[in-house]
Amino acid sequence: MVKAESLGTGAALLSSIQEWLRHGRQCGERIGGHACSSLAGKTDEEALEKAVGIHARAASFEFDSDTFLASALVSFYAKCGSIRDAWKVFQKVRLHDAVSWTVMILGLAESGQGVLSLQLFHRMRAQGYKTDAPTFVAALKASSSVGALEPLKGIQADISRCGLEDDPVVANGVVDGYGKAGAAAKAQLVFESLEKPDAVAWTSVIAAHSRDGDTRMPWRACPPSEALLQGDEYGVRPGAEHYHCMVDALGRANELEEAVEMVEAMPCEASGVAWRTVLGACKKWKNAAVGRLAFDRLVEVEARHEAGYLLMEAIYASSGMREEQAQV
């Protein structure tokens, strides 16, 4: 059975479409699996243009309503930013399954249509379709994008009824959802129920407390540097966005030296975003020493970005260092 998470973009997704074309479909040779494979490695814009052509040929043989092919096309269109085309394909499917529902729910959620995504999720549930972990993850993303508490409570109740509350990826989504809905205490409770929180869970719970004004709460159990080193059985590893979140939370807590250490520990080259985050925290706490260090690092990667210079001037001004301010 094809799983929703296997329907991605680029080579993996288009290889799936090619596989569909090869296995017992009359239109396989006529549509041309080679055309699908030719999309691999191209940019989203280039691949989208070619995919539209392949879709048109599939439609001419009335195979675009096949559940698997339609699910792949929905996923591809959504991830390329063409949510209208994704919706048109979804509507033509004669017999939906959990995958086709999930990719459409996820596509809407990731396209900024959280309300519509949640409506589709509830429609799926009302029609009696079985929901699995990927479906709940998609619904949780929709709930997080809306930032409303009540829909999240309902989804969490459904998750418990389905016995998926211990699934790490689902639990991470619940933690993130409660954090973005302003319910840091509930996010903390779910976080504490996890047997082995991964980097995503730590990032979500720290962000939740940071939004709530308490940046120190989750770190009493585990230092942030250790939290980011923790992967999980799903192979999730912290990316730049996780580090940025940690740096922001450290800055809010006036742990500026540790924020700098966090930026310097990033597995990739630190971007201007990371150093501007530190610089903004230094402005808040009037720390000219760390601010100057962050400013120098920022200039190395973004010499022409005006915001950094303005922040550094403001830091010197608030510290009464007029001479240094004039030299920025």
Rank of each mutant, 00 (worst) to 15 (best):
S111V: 06
L120P: 01
C27E: 14
D166Y: 15
D214Q: 12
V263I: 12
E300H: 07
G177F: 13
A314M: 11
A307N: 10
S82A: 15
E302G: 03
M124Q: 00
S143C: 13
I206Q: 07
K286F: 04
A171I: 13
S71D: 01
V146Y: 07
E195V: 13
D232L: 06
V52T: 06
E257D: 12
F121S: 04
R304M: 09
V247C: 11
D64I: 00
W219Y: 06
K284C: 09
F90E: 01
G213D: 10
L14T: 02
A187P: 11
G154R: 01
M124K: 05
N172P: 14
T131Y: 05
E269A: 05
G8S: 11
R252K: 15
K286M: 05
L140E: 03
S204W: 09
F61V: 02
V52S: 03
V115K: 06
D64S: 10
A51R: 01
D232Y: 12
A109Q: 05
V115W: 08
S38L: 04
V115I: 10
E110F: 04
S71I: 01
A142P: 05
R123N: 06
K92R: 15
V170A: 13
Q26S: 08
G182H: 12
F68N: 01
V115Q: 06
A98T: 15
K50E: 09
Q26K: 14
R237P: 00
D296L: 09
D97P: 02
W87G: 01
G24I: 04
L256C: 08
G235S: 03
I315A: 12
P168C: 08
L298E: 07
D166L: 12
I155W: 07
A207F: 09
E313I: 09
G154W: 09
V260M: 10
D214M: 06
V247P: 10
W87Q: 09
Y178L: 01
A199N: 10
I155M: 02
Y309T: 15
D97W: 06
I83G: 07
A181R: 06
K286I: 03
M321F: 15
P134D: 06
T277F: 07
E29V: 08
K92Y: 04
T43A: 04
D198K: 05
S145T: 14
S6P: 02
S160E: 15
L152H: 02
A249T: 13
T203Y: 08
G251F: 12
E264H: 03
A201W: 10
S318T: 14
E302C: 08
P197W: 11
L140N: 00
D212S: 12
S318K: 14
D132K: 05
A51D: 02
L120D: 02
V290N: 07
A240V: 14
F63N: 00
G53M: 08
R237L: 11
S318H: 13
C27V: 12
S6I: 04
L69Q: 05
R220H: 08
G53N: 00
L310G: 14
R276T: 10
K284S: 10
K50H: 03
D214E: 13
D212P: 01
M266I: 04
G308V: 05
S225V: 07
E195Q: 12
F63K: 00
S111M: 00
F191Q: 06
I155S: 01
G28D: 03
V236C: 14
D248W: 06
